[in-house]
Structure formats: structure tokens, C-alpha cells
Amino acid sequence: MSADGKLKVATVSLAGCFGCHMSLLDMDERIIDLLEHVEFERSPLTDIKRVGRCDIGLIEGGVCNAENVQVLREFRRRCHTLVALGACAVNGGLPAQRNHLDVGQCLQAVYLSRQGLEGGRVPDDPELPLPLDKVHPIHEVVRIDYFLPGCPPSGELIFTFLSDLIRGRSPRLGHPALHYD
């Protein structure tokens, strides 16, 4: 909790499309109500790069590379409550559609075999995180406290969910708020 009694919230997009973050912003002016109770810590919205002690961590996206694993574990260590936000965090989503393919063959197909790429090479800059052989939902890597499915979950749903968490209530989802598409 911050000095003025606000809950600290950190957010990150791993193997996601930032759609869930767009949805977070889609709660429009209610984000001002939210800011009465929370303070954003590390997040694409604040551009803070390191995550400190936080009350709530929102994770968008699954885990597709070594950096995702490291960031996710850091969030788990620093956040009291960790939330899987959206389809990709919950079940791997679109990036996991590559899981039945061989990642080496994928890279070769993209960077070597396509027409016009003769003499190309698979990028190997040391700054590039190594891809995992499969994309994993985040609950397969760390313990997750809450799951918010949807591609993306609506701004309305995210607002209600966070409002419940802030007030110490256990968020409950049912039809029609709980959907997977």
C-alpha cells in the first residue's frame, strides 16, 4: 500500500497484444474513480520498468519466451494478489496456436525459407529473449489467485473486478459477464 493508503497495482503484457490493456483504459472516466483507491506501479501506462511491492498484479498474455518467465516470476514475488487478465494469460490464447508446430521450423520458415529471404538468418542478437518451445498459460508457471477470461475482458468487467478486489470482496463471475471470446 502507498503512503496515502492507496493499493499499488502493477500491470504487464507478456505474450499478449495489449488488447487487455486497451480494455483497461476502455473503462473511460471511471479510471479516475479507480485512481482514488489505487496507484499504478510498474505498467505500460506509467512506463515504470521495475516492479516493487504491490498489492495487485495484472498479467496480460501467456508465456512465450525466457523474459516472460522471468518477469512473471518477479511479479509473483512482488505482488500479493496476481490476476490472469484475458484469454492469453488464462489459456495461452492466440500465441499458443503455434504449439503444435516446431519452433525451430517456424523460425526457419519465417526468416530463411520465404521467397526473397535467401541468405537471411534467424535473429540471434543476445538482447532478444529466447523463445520457448511452447507458449504456456501463466498458471502453468506460477500460482495465480484470480482469472479473468475474455478476449479481451470488457472495461466494465475489469472495473467491477478491481472494485471488488479493492473492497476486499471475492470477485465472482457468471453469465453473461463470464465469456471466453
Binding site: 488464462v90 489459456n91 499458443a96 504449439n99 498458471h139 484470480y146 482469472f147 477470461p149 453469465h175 465469456h179
Partner: peptide, 19 residues
């Protein structure tokens, strides 16, 4: 899908097979 929504399934809980 409708049944999962009806019964409040928010997570697949187990590890995916990705067949």
C-alpha cells in the same frame, strides 16, 4: 463454452495438452 460460463469456470486449472 456455455456450460463453462454457467458453472463459473474461470480457469482451465490443469496443464494444456495442445494436441
Amino acid at each position: 463454452q456455455a456450460m463453462a460460463s454457467e458453472l463459473g469456470m474461470t480457469t482451465p486449472r490443469f496443464n494444456h495438452f495442445y494436441p
